[in-house]
Measured scan of single mutants.
Amino acid sequence: ETQAGIKEEIRRQEFLLNSLHRDLQGGIKDLSKEERLWEVQRILTALKRKLR
């Protein structure tokens, strides 16, 4: 995994995270989306740690 590859994956995950946040802010309670949001946040945290 290169730095560029990790950064690209971070961009993808952040896009997905923002999309999930928008969907959930629409007021629709969706447990699967909430679980996915937490999963994406965990992935992002792990990726950012790899960059250090």
Rank of each mutant, 00 (worst) to 15 (best):
K48V: 05
R22A: 12
E34P: 02
E8R: 10
L44I: 14
E34K: 11
I6Q: 01
A4I: 08
V40N: 01
S32H: 10
Q41S: 07
L17W: 11
K50R: 09
T45A: 14
R52N: 09
L37S: 09
Q41K: 11
I10C: 06
E14K: 04
E39T: 03
A4L: 10
W38Y: 10
K7W: 14
H21R: 15
R12N: 06
L20A: 01
F15D: 15
G5I: 12
R52D: 10
E35P: 02
E35L: 09
E39I: 04
D30C: 03
G5S: 12
E8K: 08
Q3T: 12
L37T: 02
R52A: 13
R12I: 08
L51F: 04
R36W: 06
R42L: 10
G5K: 14
I6G: 00
Q41Y: 13
T2C: 15
L24V: 04
L20P: 00
Q13D: 03
L47G: 00
S19Y: 06
E9H: 13
D23F: 12
R42T: 05
L31Y: 08
Q41T: 10
S19P: 00
I43K: 06
R52P: 03
R49S: 13
G26L: 12
I6T: 01
K50G: 02
S32Y: 10
L51R: 01
N18E: 15
W38C: 15
D30R: 01
E9F: 04
R42V: 06
L37C: 09
I10R: 01
H21F: 14
Q25D: 08
L37Q: 02
L44Q: 00
E14N: 03
R49W: 04
I6F: 02
A46E: 15
I10Q: 01
L20S: 00
R12L: 13
K50H: 03
E34M: 15
R36V: 10
L24G: 02
E8I: 07
H21C: 15
Q25H: 13
E1T: 10
L31F: 09
H21S: 11
T45D: 15
V40L: 05
I10L: 01
H21P: 01
K48F: 08
R22E: 10
Q41L: 15
G5Y: 13
S19Q: 14
S19V: 10
G27P: 09
L24S: 03
I10W: 01
A4N: 07
R36Q: 13
L16E: 07
A46F: 06
L16N: 01
E39F: 04
L16K: 02
R22P: 02
Q25I: 08
E39L: 04
T45K: 11
V40I: 13
R49Q: 14
K48A: 03
K50Q: 13
I6Y: 02
K48T: 03
R36K: 11
R11A: 10
R11T: 05
G26S: 14
N18Q: 13
L51P: 00
K33T: 12
S19W: 11
V40F: 04
R22M: 11
T2K: 09
D23Y: 09
E1F: 09
E14Y: 09
L17P: 01
Q13R: 02
I10F: 01
L44W: 00
S32A: 14
G27V: 06
S19N: 07
I6M: 03
Q3V: 15
H21Q: 14
R52L: 14
K7R: 14
L37E: 02
G27D: 07
Q3D: 07
L47N: 01
K48Y: 15
Q41M: 14
T45F: 06
L47K: 00
E34I: 14
Q41E: 13
I6E: 01
K29I: 11
E14F: 04
T45E: 15
E34H: 08
L51E: 01
L47T: 00
A46T: 05
E39Y: 03
R12Y: 08
Q25C: 15
E9P: 02
F15I: 15
E34R: 12
R36C: 06
Q41A: 08
L17C: 13
E9Q: 09
G5W: 15
R22I: 09
N18L: 11
E34F: 15
L51C: 03
I10G: 01
G27T: 08
L37I: 14
L24H: 03
A4D: 09
I28C: 12
R22H: 09
W38H: 13
H21D: 04
W38D: 10
Q13L: 15
G27E: 06
T45R: 12
V40H: 04
K33W: 12
E14S: 03
R49T: 10
L24E: 02
K7Y: 11
L37A: 05
W38V: 13
E14P: 00
G27Q: 07
L20M: 03
L20R: 00
K33V: 13
Q41N: 06
I43M: 06
R22Q: 11
Q13W: 15
R12D: 04
Q3P: 05
L44F: 00
G26D: 10
L31G: 06
R11F: 04
I43H: 06
W38A: 14
L20H: 01
L44T: 01
Q3F: 07
W38R: 14
L20E: 00
S19G: 05
D23H: 05
R22V: 09
D30L: 02
R36F: 07
H21K: 15
I6P: 00
R12H: 05
Q13N: 10
S19D: 08
R11P: 01
R36I: 07
K7F: 08
L20N: 00
N18W: 10
G5E: 14
E8S: 06
L20Q: 00
L31A: 13
K48D: 02
Q25M: 12
